[in-house]
């Protein structure tokens, strides 16, 4: 297993002293190499927090997350992140943005040139490599952000609602482009989204996070035919299954009732 999340919890301190609000509680799962995993759930359920913990930006309060057997304690280019809003550095043109990661890793100049050209070609941005980020459209920015992390040749790609701010056409185009790149590289991906359709289309497996206070988690494997489609019966069936699971997990429990134990990591 590439990632093992073992019984982690995370709470954020509240305005009133001594109080804290749990965001993730007793969550465990594992992700295999080459798997495309989507994490869905309503807003505030801790999806982004989970992703930030896997990225190493914030530590869990309890439990541990291991990457390839080693505990994660800080960010690393092996676990590259595409953020919700493209965080390309505005003061560098596209090419320099993409070069930065390999340069920090000490890649030689000729090799650097080749890697950057390959990544620009992968996301189809050769023509705009001299442009500055503010001169690009939203879709182009996200493609550039993807190229920047692909240049790191990461073992794990973490994506935090990367397409949520884009229009439907661009989003679908980028989803297909992402799938193509992942297939080519056998890339392991953890993809956070709030869109059930997106999860059903992209993922091999979906981890569903329930809404507080009854924090339950479920893991659901997506079944699909030979071809991936947005409109076929299988896709519709997957969407319905996801919706049902999401609704089930987000059901409000009566006051005083505890979240049912043992519902973490169940297969729906």
């Amino acid at each position: 297993m590439l990632i093992e999340v073992a019984d982690i919890s995370k709470a954020y301190p509240q305005a009133r002293e001594g109080e804290s609000a749990a965001v993730v509680e007793n969550l465990s799962f594992a992700i295999a190499e080459g798997e495309f995993v989507c994490i869905i759930g309503p807003s505030g359920c801790g999806k982004s927090t989970l992703l930030n913990m896997i990225a190493g930006f914030i530590p869990p309060d309890r439990g541990k997350i291991c990457f390839d057997g080693r505990q994660i304690n800080r960010p690393d280019p092996e676990r590259a992140v595409v953020f919700q809003e493209a965080t390309l550095f505005p003061w560098m043109n596209l090419r320099r943005n993409i070069e930065l990661g390999p340069k920090a890793a000490g890649v030689a100049k000729t090799e650097l040139h080749r890697i950057v050209n390959d990544c620009l070609a992968l996301v189809d941005l050769n023509c705009s490599q001299q442009a500055y980020p503010h001169q690009l459209s939203g879709g182009m920015k996200q493609r550039a952000a993807l190229a920047r992390v692909l240049a790191l040749q990461p073992r794990l790609l973490l994506m935090d609602e990367p397409f949520s701010a884009l229009d439907a056409d661009t989003r679908e185009h980028l989803q297909d482009q992402l799938l193509k790149i992942c297939a080519k590289r056998r890339q392991t991906v953890v993809f956070v989204t709030h869109s059930v359709e997106e999860a059903a289309y992209l993922a091999d497996r979906v981890i569903i996070m329930g809404y507080p206070p009854n924090r339950c988690y479920a893991s659901l494997r997506i079944q699909r035919g030979q071809e991936r489609s947005r409109t076929d019966k299988q896709q519709m069936f997957n969407i319905l299954r996801l919706r049902a699971a999401l609704k089930d997990l987000s059901r409000q429990l009566p006051d005083g009732a505890n979240a049912p134990q043992g519902c973490t990591q169940q297969d729906v």
Partner: peptide
């Protein structure tokens, strides 16, 4: 977010100051 991105890209402290 820029600082997080820089850390994720593997920038050391000196590069973080100079480039970010």
């Amino acid at each position: 977010m820029y600082i997080r991105a820089a850390r994720m890209l593997g920038l050391n402290n000196r590069m973080l100051f100079r480039t970010v």
